[in-house]
Design a protein around this nucleic acid. Sequence first.
DNA 1: AGGATGACAGTGT
DNA 2: AACACTGCCATCC
Length: 130
Amino acid sequence: MDPRSVEAICRVVLAIPRGEVTTYGAVARKAGLPGRARLVGRILKVTPASIGLPWHRVLGAGGRIVFPASSRAFAEQRRRLRAEGVVVTHGRVVRDEAPDLDELLWKPLNSGAPGRHGRATGRSRSRRSR
DNA sequence: AGGATGACAGTGT
DNA sequence: AACACTGCCATCC
């Protein structure tokens, strides 16, 4: 396996801030290896824990924990994430911010009254904690 | 050598 | 939302 890829991927994973998460695909892209999500998973698997990679901050597409819900790894990842304040529900990480397009486009303009314009998605307050 | 298997993802139905 | 299919490619039989 190309050690350059390994290094690139490890660096990206190391750079994930505490309390934040990303996905295999995103890591691959940032490492300059688009389409190599599988490789990311492989690296995380074979890399010794002693290296101290924050592997738990890497999720499957859609913020899903990829391990079987009954597995040890699943429980461990969920535990670590919650320990960092990440909200996990039904094996997924709750998307904290849904920065939709119009919000991104408008925010800089009306800096006086940010957000707050009838965007009631309703989903925000329902915190089913399982 | 060739098929199966993954810590995955994107698209189509 | 759930499945099927395809792309990806390093490893392991």
